[in-house]
Computed example of a mutant assay.
Amino acid sequence: MTVDAPTTVVNLGEKKARKLTSSRRPVWMEKPSAATQGVKGLVLLLICIAVIYPFMIVIGTSLSTQEEIARNNGFVLFPAEPTLAAYQTIFAGGIVTEALLRSVGITLVGTALSVTLTVLMAYGLSRRGLLGGGFFLMTALLTMLFTPGIIPTFLVVKELGLLDTYAALILPTALSAFNLVIVRSFMMGIPSELTEAARLDGAGDLRILWHVVLPLSKAVIAVVGLFYAVGYWNAFFNAMLYVDSDKWPLAMVLRQYVLLGSSIDQSAAAEIAAPSQAIQMAVIVISIVPILCVYPFLQKYFTKGVLTGAIKG
Rank of each mutant, 00 (worst) to 15 (best):
P152C: 10
A80Q: 15
L100C: 00
A99I: 08
A70T: 14
I150G: 10
F91W: 13
L46P: 03
S103T: 06
L45E: 00
G124N: 10
C48M: 12
V115I: 13
F78C: 07
G149S: 12
L141P: 03
A92N: 09
T153A: 13
V119Y: 04
E67T: 12
P79S: 09
E67H: 10
T61Y: 01
L131K: 15
I52E: 01
I90H: 02
N72E: 14
F154W: 07
G110F: 00
C48F: 11
T61L: 03
P152W: 14
F136A: 13
F136M: 14
G129W: 15
M121C: 12
F55R: 00
Y53I: 02
L155T: 06
I59D: 00
I57S: 05
Y123G: 07
I49W: 08
F135Y: 13
I90T: 02
T147V: 12
A112C: 09
T107M: 05
F55E: 00
A86F: 12
I90W: 03
A50Q: 02
L46Q: 04
T147F: 11
E67K: 14
L77T: 02
M138I: 14
P79V: 07
L125R: 11
V156C: 11
L117H: 03
I59W: 03
S62D: 05
I69F: 07
L120E: 06
V76H: 06
E67Y: 09
R102M: 02
V51T: 09
G134A: 14
Q66N: 15
S103D: 02
I90P: 00
L113V: 13
I90D: 03
T97G: 10
R102C: 01
V109G: 03
I49L: 15
L130W: 08
A80Y: 06
E68P: 09
I95R: 01
P148L: 05
T116I: 08
A99D: 03
R127D: 04
I106T: 01
L145W: 05
L84S: 08
I90Q: 04
P152V: 04
V96M: 02
G105L: 12
L142Y: 07
L113I: 13
G133E: 15
M56Q: 05
F146N: 03
T107K: 05
T97H: 09
T61D: 04
P148K: 03
V119Q: 10
A85L: 05
L113P: 02
E98M: 04
N72T: 10
P152K: 11
T89D: 10
